[in-house]
Simulated scan of single mutants.
Amino acid sequence: MKAYHWDELLEDEDLMELTEEAISPRTARRIPWRQLGALAACLALILCLANYQALAAAMKRIVDYFAGVGAAEQGTQVLVLDAPLTWTDDTWTYHLNAYQAGAYLFVQMEYLSTELEQGADISDGVPDYDLQAELLPPTDWDASWLPQKKALDRCSASYEDLNHWESPEGAALREAGYRTYGSHSNLFQVGAFSSNNYRFRITFTNSSASKGYQTFTYEKELNLVPGKAEATVSDSRTFPEGTITVLVSKDGSGVTNFVDWSPELTGDSSIHALDLQFIGASGKQYPAGFHNTYLEDFAHVEYYPRFPVDEPIAAVEITGVLFEDPSGAWQHNYENLNWIIPLT
């Protein structure tokens, strides 16, 4: 970076006058506007030079908001489902959403049951299912396919008793008749095998003592179409951990955010979450559903009204922000923020 000297930033006449003022006794006299302008320009340039790297990094972080996706760097090809896939089996209702951003295919599933199923091996009564998710090529695919280790994901589905949810979202789900909630996420690095069509196979296995060995398998077609970036309203706030930038779709249907972390946390695995509500034109507050998923340096962060809203969304209110280290080393919670982002 070039080093600047005062005589390069100011004219000789201005430099002489400012030097005389610096060494002369201080008197209450007005500085000419021309000199004020020169000083302001000089100060602005110095500040810009001092923060050049930070400014350059901020300029590079330009993102779009896609419904169902969250934030994606501008220029990234994004493919989405036309609508989430939904089906019902016995007491369970399943919701599957998927999108592809660049070389990654992300699949998010949620399950809701109207019953609290009993599992003898879990103290809170929520069943414990092992899960196998497999990404398969389109039916007419006739070339090589992803290696098995990249196409297959084995994990445990996360289930919760909704009676334990004290949040407004939990109350709304119980009011709708649901008793059990489950979810899981899968991330496939498709790379050169990326397509706009896949088959997704999910197999659940339950070996509880009360029900014996049970297996459920579902196979769904993932037909993806180009995603369209939403018009958004944005706002930012800075905390010791970093600056959060929030993007709200102009119709209020979705919210995403990202963090420019402070230098001390850059490269850390730190995560964050917002406590927010949607505010209708009448002033009524609506609870938010959310996806805050962090997988292999891949983040899916999005908030949305959990249930249909029968009036225009006028604003989003963020009452709290949580920063934490997943290992439990530290956690910082900021409450009562009164951070309101109006949409009109």
Score class of each variant (00 low, 15 high):
Asp128Tyr: 04
Pro287Arg: 09
Cys42Val: 10
Asp14Asn: 03
Ala83His: 15
Glu73Trp: 04
Asp310Met: 11
Leu162Gln: 04
Gln285Thr: 14
Asp130Ile: 04
Ser123Asn: 15
Val309Ile: 15
Ala38Cys: 07
Gly177Gln: 08
Leu337Glu: 00
Ser236Pro: 11
Trp165Val: 01
Arg199Pro: 01
Ala315Gln: 08
Thr203Leu: 09
Pro326Phe: 12
Glu20Asp: 13
Ala103Gln: 02
Asn336Met: 12
Ala143Arg: 15
Ser195Phe: 13
Glu115Tyr: 04
Leu15Arg: 08
Tyr52Ile: 02
Ser253Gly: 09
Ala209Phe: 11
Leu116Arg: 07
His95Val: 11
His5Leu: 15
Lys149Asn: 00
Asp128Gly: 02
Val246Asp: 07
Gln132Val: 11
Ser208Ala: 09
Ala41Asp: 15
Glu11Ser: 09
Gly289Leu: 04
Thr293Ile: 08
Ser327Thr: 14
His272Ser: 03
Val309Arg: 01
Asp140Arg: 12
Val321Phe: 03
Leu105Asp: 03
Ser210Asp: 13
Gly254Val: 02
Ser207Asn: 11
Leu10Gly: 08
Ile31Thr: 07
Val107Ala: 00
Glu17Asn: 12
Phe106Leu: 09
Thr19Asp: 11
Ile122Thr: 14
Gly212Cys: 05
Ala171Gly: 02
Leu343Asn: 07
Gly289Lys: 08
Thr19Leu: 09
Phe193Asn: 10
Phe323Thr: 10
Ser194Cys: 15
Phe307Ala: 06
Glu115Gln: 15
Glu241Val: 00
Ala273Gln: 05
Pro84Arg: 05
Ser253Arg: 04
Tyr304Gly: 01
Thr319Trp: 07
